[in-house]
Nucleic acid binder design. Structure first.
Length: 224
DNA sequence: GCATTAACAGCCG
DNA sequence: CGGCTGTTAATGC
């Protein structure tokens, strides 16, 4: 079972629960580690747990009929996902890949359903998260075909700093240019060029193995 | 033109 | 040292 401090650290939603709700959540969470590049699940898998990223970096993507892979969301430590699959008790509709060594927190379906039935705070969190994801997916539908590589990079980066999905995060993320390339669907070299462009515009600052956001609003809206 | 892979020197932790 | 960065060359759609 996860310690209270660890749960609070990796799950912003847990901080708003009542004491009994928090204890119920704590009892239902366990961990699992995935190696770099490993598949967490394929389309159609019945990964029945609600899932949080405790450490690492995960890509959620779909593959079109023509075989092209498109990123739906990048998720860093603190992200939680899979509620749609758990609530509807249906197979996953997307692929999940660990872009680096990743530790996932798995919440039993029964625990999730208990919180869903009993906790107002938990439901508030779910609504906010649904709302944010919907906005992201609408953005994909609107613009994905026309965006150049730099704009795709900008959007994928902005997701990782979404203040609703990651409340209280600072402006710096430890992430390599290769990982950003994997996330945004481009080679490391092109990710490198894109970062240089965005840095020149003052939207972010590139460090050695890290990125610091300077202007999240403009980064999220960047379209070339 | 814009992307990819391969290669490599240089830098950083 | 090992990993990451910045850059170039060769090549492909």
């Amino acid at each position: 079972m996860i310690t209270p401090d660890d749960l609070r650290a990796i799950a912003a939603w847990s901080r708003d629960l009542t004491q009994p709700e928090f204890e119920e959540a704590r009892r239902g969470v366990s961990f699992r580690i995935y190696g770099k590049g490993s598949n967490i699940c394929h389309v159609g898998d019945r990964l029945e747990s609600w899932t949080g990223v405790a450490e690492g970096l995960v890509k959620m993507s779909t593959t079109s009929k023509t075989g092209k892979s498109a990123t739906l969301a990048g998720m860093r430590a603190g992200a939680w996902f899979g509620e749609g699959t758990v609530i509807k008790a249906e197979p996953r509709r997307y692929e999940l890949v660990a872009l680096r060594e990743t530790r996932l927190a798995l919440m039993r379906r029964s625990t999730f359903m208990w919180l869903f039935e009993h906790s107002a705070a938990f439901n508030r969190f779910l609504v906010h998260q649904f709302n944010e994801r919907l906005a992201q997916f609408i953005a994909i539908a609107e613009t994905d075909r026309t965006l150049d590589s730099t704009a795709r990079l900008a959007r994928n980066l902005a997701w990782l700093f979404n203040p609703t999905l990651y409340p209280g995060q600072d402006r710096t993320l430890v992430v390599s240019q290769e990982e950003l390339g994997l996330l945004a669907g481009m080679s490391r070299q092109i990710a490198n060029q894109g970062l240089a462009k965005l840095e020149a515009l003052g939207l972010l600052e590139v460090g050695h193995g890290s990125v610091t956001i300077r202007d999240l609003e403009r980064l999220a809206r960047y379209e070339g």
